[in-house]
């Protein structure tokens, strides 16, 4: 393993983008406030100074316009990174990002691909109320042609962002505003990439598998710690990408633990969590000691009040309850 340095999640993403922009002039960053403001969440801090306004490009508040524009540019051969200040705002760009980007290759019979990265904040947690708290993976994971990356650590964020930029398909990269300030060890150097569809085992265990991605992975780690005190041993699997989905790693873990709890930040109905549950029921029918349990965001719009929002989201308490129930320790 190469040397590491401790940096914030947001800087890991910035480093990935900057390194790729140094490597390839076709890569550029575009979005609201990415340049002169240094990014609404300071992810692109310093990039305007290094790359100038031709490659780090401020747009007006016009998601449908600049998302569609970047897709056109990608069709011609550029490799744009498009920042949505929040994935919640991507909904006004639904047509370009869902109808154009993921279907261009297929619809053109393989003639025009769309090597583009859309990235931004995803998910609730900051008392922003219903319109700004979307977990869009629940919606977008339904669409073939898209790759969806949801990292949980700075090191993964950097390596996966580099893979995303080099990928020839449209990649939706979802960051959590709650994680941007998190520090973590990130390998030094610009040659570390992670392949998509490769889960990571964050903690080994024998009694129950916890499968998650993005911010709730950290809740899973807390829950596993707490449950260990009760004598329940949890294995935590961080999927890292939703499409492609590394169902094999979950399957292997479930064959060992015989129990699965999925922790998914999106709503339960037709979600990545329900997809994982269905696939595991199919693959591990005879290995399971209990049906797959799921912890999701509650099936209501995101509330504003702090206590309601905490109750709305997956949290450590809910995960512990689900694991106890799944392992007949309730």
């Amino acid at each position: 393993m190469s040397a590491t340095q401790e940096i914030e999640f947001r800087d890991a993403i910035r480093d990935a983008m900057s390194e790729e922009m140094r490597r390839d002039k076709r890569v550029m960053l575009i979005g609201e406030e990415v340049a002169e403001y240094n990014g609404a969440y300071k992810v692109s801090r310093g990039m305007l100074d290094e790359f100038g306004p031709r490659r780090v490009i401020d747009t007006p508040i016009s998601e449908s316009g600049f998302a569609g524009m970047a897709i056109g540019a990608a069709m011609l051969g550029l490799r744009p990174v498009v920042e949505f200040m929040s994935w919640s705002f991507s909904l006004v760009a639904a047509d370009p990002i869902l109808n154009n980007a993921p279907k261009m290759l297929f619809m053109s019979g393989g003639q025009f691909g769309c090597p583009i990265v859309f990235r931004g904040n995803d998910g609730a947690g900051g008392q922003l109320g219903s319109t700004h708290s979307w977990c869009v993976e629940g919606l977008f994971s339904n669409v073939p042609g898209i790759k969806i990356v949801i990292p949980s650590t700075p090191a993964d964020a950097k390596a996966l962002m580099k893979t995303a930029i080099r990928d020839d398909d449209p990649v939706f990269f979802m960051e959590s505003e709650r994680l941007l300030g998190m520090k973590g060890d990130v390998p030094v150097g610009d040659d570390v990439l992670l392949k998509f569809g490769q889960a990571c085992v964050r903690r080994t265990g024998t009694d129950c598998t916890l499968a998650s991605w993005g911010r709730p992975v950290h809740f899973c780690m807390e829950a596993a710690e707490e449950l260990a005190k009760e004598g329940i041993s949890c294995e935590v699997i961080d999927l890292r990408t939703i499409r492609p989905l590394d169902i094999g790693s979950i399957e292997r873990s479930v064959r060992k633990t015989s129990n699965l709890v999925i922790v998914d930040q999106s709503w339960s109905f037709g979600s990545p969590g329900s997809e994982v549950a269905a696939q595991i029921h199919q693959r591990c029918f005879d290995d399971l000691d209990n049906h797959v349990h799921r912890v999701h965001t509650e099936d209501v719009p995101a509330p504003y009040a702090f206590n309601l929002e905490q109750e709305y989201l997956p949290n450590t308490r809910k995960i512990c309850e689900a694991v106890r129930s799944a392992t007949y320790n309730a």
Partner: peptide, 13 residues
């Protein structure tokens, strides 16, 4: 549907 279904395997980690 995808140019590279599983991404580019240029990773070293």
């Amino acid at each position: 549907v995808y140019r590279e279904p599983w991404g580019r395997y240029t990773g070293t980690s």
